[in-house]
Simulated assay, not measured.
Amino acid sequence: MSDQASSSGRPDTWQAAFDLIRTRGHEYRAEPFRLASGQLSHDYIDGKYAVDTGERLAVVSRAVADLAAANGIEFDAVGGLTMGADPLAHGVAMVTGKAWFSVRKEQKTRGREQWIEGTRLQPGTRVLLVDDVISTGGSTELALERIAPLGVVVTGVIPMVDRGDIAARRFAAHGIPFHALVGYRDLGIEPVKDV
Rank of each mutant, 00 (worst) to 15 (best):
Arg170Trp: 08
Asp76Asn: 02
Val153Asp: 04
Val60His: 10
Thr119Ser: 03
Phe178Trp: 06
Asp12Tyr: 12
Pro87Met: 01
Gly54Thr: 07
Arg10Leu: 12
Ala68Ser: 12
Ile73Leu: 06
Glu106Pro: 09
Met1Arg: 10
Gly72Tyr: 00
Arg104Trp: 05
Val161Cys: 06
Asp46Pro: 04
Phe171Ile: 03
Asp132Gln: 00
Gly80Arg: 02
Gln4Ala: 14
Ser2Ala: 14
Arg112Lys: 14
Val51Glu: 04
Ala36Pro: 11
Thr140Ala: 11
Asp46Tyr: 00
Ser6Leu: 13
Val153Tyr: 03
Gly118Gln: 05
Pro11Val: 02
Gln15Ala: 14
Val192Thr: 08
Gly72Trp: 06
Val192Arg: 10
Gly137Ile: 11
Phe33Ala: 15
Arg104His: 02
Ile116Trp: 00
Arg10Tyr: 15
Pro177Ala: 10
Val154Asp: 02
Val161Lys: 00
Leu67Arg: 06
Arg146Thr: 00
Ala89Arg: 01
Ser7Tyr: 13
Leu67Val: 12
Ser41Arg: 08
Ala143Cys: 08
Arg34Cys: 13
Glu55Pro: 04
Ile73Ser: 07
Tyr184Val: 14
Ser6Tyr: 14
Ala5Asn: 09
Val92Arg: 02
Ile134Ser: 03
Phe178Thr: 01
Gly47Gln: 00
Leu128Ile: 12
Glu117Leu: 06
Ile176Cys: 12
Ile176Lys: 05
Gly84Asp: 00
Arg120Asn: 10
Val161Trp: 01
Tyr28Leu: 13
Ala5Phe: 14
Ala36Met: 02
Ile158Tyr: 04
Lys193Ile: 04
Val130Arg: 04
Ala58Gln: 12
Val130Gln: 05
Asp66Arg: 14
Val195Leu: 13
Ala16Tyr: 14
Arg34Leu: 12
Val95Glu: 09
Ser37His: 11
Glu31Cys: 06
Lys105Ile: 02
Gln15Met: 14
Lys108Val: 00
Gly80Glu: 05
Ser37Gly: 06
Leu121Gly: 10
His179Thr: 09
Gly124Cys: 15
Ala36Arg: 10
Met1Leu: 15
Val78Asp: 09
Val133Phe: 06
Thr125Cys: 08
Glu106Arg: 02
Asp52Thr: 02
Phe171Arg: 00
Leu20Glu: 04
Val153Arg: 07
Ile189Cys: 12
Leu35Ala: 07
Gly80Cys: 01
Pro177Asp: 08
Glu55Cys: 11
Val78Trp: 08
Ser7Gly: 14
Gly188Glu: 07
Pro87Ser: 11
Gly79Val: 04
Val195Ile: 15
Thr96Glu: 11
Asp52Glu: 09
Leu144Arg: 04
Arg24Leu: 05
Tyr49Arg: 11
Thr82Trp: 05
Ala89Glu: 12
Glu145Pro: 03
Gly164Pro: 12
Ala65Ser: 14
Gly183Phe: 07
Asp52Pro: 04
Ala65Met: 09
Val154Arg: 04
Ala143Gln: 00
Ala30Gln: 12
Leu57Ala: 01
Gly54Asn: 12
Tyr44Leu: 01
Thr109Tyr: 09
Glu145His: 00
Gly138Lys: 02
Gly91Lys: 12
Ile166Gln: 08
Ser139Thr: 02
Val157Met: 01
Ile134His: 05
Ala69Asp: 09
Val133Pro: 04
Ile176Val: 15
Val153Pro: 01
Gln122Glu: 03
Thr53Trp: 05
Thr109Arg: 15
Gly79Ala: 05
Gly9Ile: 13
Lys48Met: 06
Tyr44His: 14
Ala77Tyr: 02
Val154Met: 01
